[in-house]
């Protein structure tokens, strides 16, 4: 067992402390990257600023490649990594709702908090709205339960579904990401809105 496998053996307060510092780092980088601006996030939708896509997709492929390398060298136990179970209906419907809220509000939950911390009022309203939505969902859950639970696929993984090894899938995803970044930069040129991007 390597150094990255022992987190579960640490005392709880230390675990929480580590989480605290990781959280600070995450919030700090979100703010520094300009994600506390709703215009930056909405830019993804209109095409004038695709930073969101590039940052999060890069984060995903770096994390994917890194965790697989660490696992290969026996430093990380990927079996302990939680795989979100796949509820097909919920994923599609929830994805649409979240995407619509994302472009209308200009924040996702994480960036909303980071924007609130620098005192943005719209972020405050956005987060209150999110809380109300979560509350309403919890209260009406019995009515939507059947819909939400339908088409349950368990902890599905794309590489297993495609029948390739995880490494091959990572390679394909990296190539797709690089291609997508290139398209995104083209879009930025095409739909450029200097009056907005110059402020950001």
């Amino acid at each position: 067992m390597g150094p990255l496998s022992i987190l579960s053996e640490l005392p709880e307060w230390l675990n929480l402390l580590i989480a605290f510092f990781i959280g600070i780092g995450f919030g700090f980088s979100l703010e520094q990257a300009g994600f506390s601006s709703s215009r930056k996030l909405a830019g993804m939708f209109y095409g004038y600023d695709t930073t969101v896509l590039k940052v999060f997709f890069t984060a995903a492929i770096v994390a994917l490649a890194g965790s697989q390398l660490l696992s290969y060298f026996g430093l990380l136990n990927l079996k302990l990594v939680f795989v979100n179970p796949y509820y097909m209906n919920s994923a599609i419907i929830g994805g649409i709702i979240m995407g619509a809220g994302f472009v209308m509000g200009g924040y996702c939950p994480g960036t909303g908090i980071s924007a609130l911390s620098i005192g943005k009022i719209d972020a405050l309203i956005f987060l209150i709205g999110g809380m109300v939505g979560a509350f309403l969902f919890a209260e009406t859950y019995p009515y939507v339960q059947t819909l939400a639970m339908e088409n349950y696929k368990g902890a599905m993984r794309i590489d297993e579904w495609m029948g390739v090894s995880a490494g091959v899938f990572t390679f394909l995803l990296i190539v797709a990401a690089v291609a997508l970044f290139w398209v995104a930069e083209l879009a930025e040129k095409r739909y450029s809105r200097p009056e907005i991007t110059n402020d950001l």
Partner: peptide
């Protein structure tokens, strides 16, 4: 960065690594 990531991806693609135990 693109070259680095794609390079790492190629190495990973050839590893006998798999998600099984």
């Amino acid at each position: 960065y693109s070259v680095l990531l794609i390079g790492v991806g190629i190495i990973l693609a050839f590893l006998p690594f798999n998600a099984s135990l």
